[in-house]
């Protein structure tokens, strides 16, 4: 039998923590944000860099998944063009509730410097966005900070059915 070190002076002497359902569910959700790899352009490179050696995204519980059905966070990293717009909607619809969206970089936020015929002027015209990260391209630190703020946002929510699915319209 495994020997657990139990501090009998804390938590009523038991190796347990008492909490509410909300807190434990939100703890689970916020610390295992599986992100959909949505590298569209330059910001996608910084997203990869934050997943790589120096910035080590895994310590936030953020693992990149290639399938929308396995992920609950979509990091839209890069310029969304009008030709691509329908695919982002498709992939967003395939993600399971609850789902969150981070819009990374100026192009995804507002169209940024590409004020042209071919770019969607902000990804929030297509899907609802939770967090906007400024920068062109934002540094990996910005993305990490953004994920921590998103975790904070998730913790502030009620975990039960009261959480309404987000709709753009």
């Amino acid at each position: 039998m495994a020997q657990h070190k139990v501090n009998y002076t804390q938590d009523g002497g038991l190796p347990v923590a008492l909490t509410s359902i909300d807190k434990i569910v939100n703890w689970g959700r916020s610390n295992s944000l599986w992100a959909l790899t949505y590298g569209l352009a330059c910001c996608g490179i910084e997203m990869m860099a934050s997943g790589a050696s120096r910035y080590d995204f895994d310590r936030y519980g953020t693992i990149f998944r290639a399938s929308p059905r396995q992920s609950d966070l979509m990091i839209v990293a890069g310029t969304l063009t009008k030709k691509h717009a329908e695919f982002i909607k498709r992939l967003y619809d395939q993600m399971t509730e609850p789902r969150w969206v981070i819009s990374m970089g100026s192009c995804a936020n507002t169209g940024g410097m590409f004020n042209t015929y071919a770019t969607v002027q902000g990804v929030d015209r297509i899907i609802p966005v939770d967090l906007y990260l400024p920068g062109c391209a934002p540094r990996p630190e910005t993305l990490q900070y953004g994920v921590m703020l998103l975790q904070k946002k998730i913790r502030a929510n009620k975990a039960g059915n009261a959480q309404k699915p987000k709709r753009l319209m």
Binding site: A41, G78, T79, T81, K83, M113, F114, T116, A118, T119
Partner: peptide, 23 residues
């Protein structure tokens, strides 16, 4: 292709030379 077409050549026609450098 074309899913990342952002119209850079068109932008260049509407920008002074130094302005196009960051693009």
């Amino acid at each position: 292709i074309g899913y990342l077409h952002r119209g850079m050549e068109k932008m260049a026609e509407n920008m002074i030379y130094n302005e196009f450098m960051p693009t």
